[in-house]
Amino acid sequence: MARAVTNRRKSVNTILAWIVGLVIFFPILWTILTSFKTEAQAISSPPVFLFFDWTLENYGVVQERSDYMRFLWNSVIIAGGSTLIGVIIAVPAAWSMAFVPSRRTKDILLWMLSTKMLPAVGVLYPIYLMFIRLGLLDTRTGLVIVVMLINLPIIVWMLYTYFREIPVDILEAARMDGASLKEEILHVLTPMAVPGIASTLLLNFILAWNEAFWTLNLTAAKAAPLTAFIASYSSPEGLFFAKLSAASTMAIAPILILGWFSQKQLVRGLTFGAVK
């Protein structure tokens, strides 16, 4: 049972935790604040924290100069497309593993996870070569395929753990009630698995959005998503802190919001169920 805690102790905890939390969050906060400054204020000495002339100018400039929307759109397509296709391929596979397990199920599952452990750099050139041959270099299609494949093991895994929580009895009941396999998946399994499928979509969308090896190495201009867009700011071009901040804020804002919804799934998805 939780014990009654003195307000004094609770206050100390609260203050300490908030300080630590704010320190960890500070780089993000600072980026967001700086994005509303003018370039001069962004590098003023001493730095200004809150009392500056708030401006939206940077956001306009970033969009104008670099066509932010195009990168955003590429990110959405790559992250969304890869996740959606991944889930469509993974649902039947996870269904099989969860409800018709065989002696090999465990091995297959572990093998799938192990492909996730393959260091990307080890297979960079073959993939690069294949992309050139197949005309996939710097195309969204190519990246959707690659990002889908690198996340597929996690998607299968997450769905598998969610499906396993659905009692087999219920699916058998549906079978006894005269439901075909299709009706069983459609009317019984899917409605019950909606929360799990949604969490899986969410977490893998985030992982795909932040993927920064293949997106950097397999795109140039056309298909580059936000990861590559931001990386292009790494070449020094004078004073650009405010604009960098605006670009960064735009790149991370959508995902921060989604991320906050998926805290719990994070643990399940990234530890392969080894921590509960």
Binding site: D169, I170, E172, A173, M176, D177, G178, S180, P191, M192
Partner: peptide, 18 residues
Amino acid sequence: PAKRGLAMVFQSYALYPH
């Protein structure tokens, strides 16, 4: 099973929760 014309009551009841 769907075509055998039998009905089953499970230990866990196996009701559809949704």
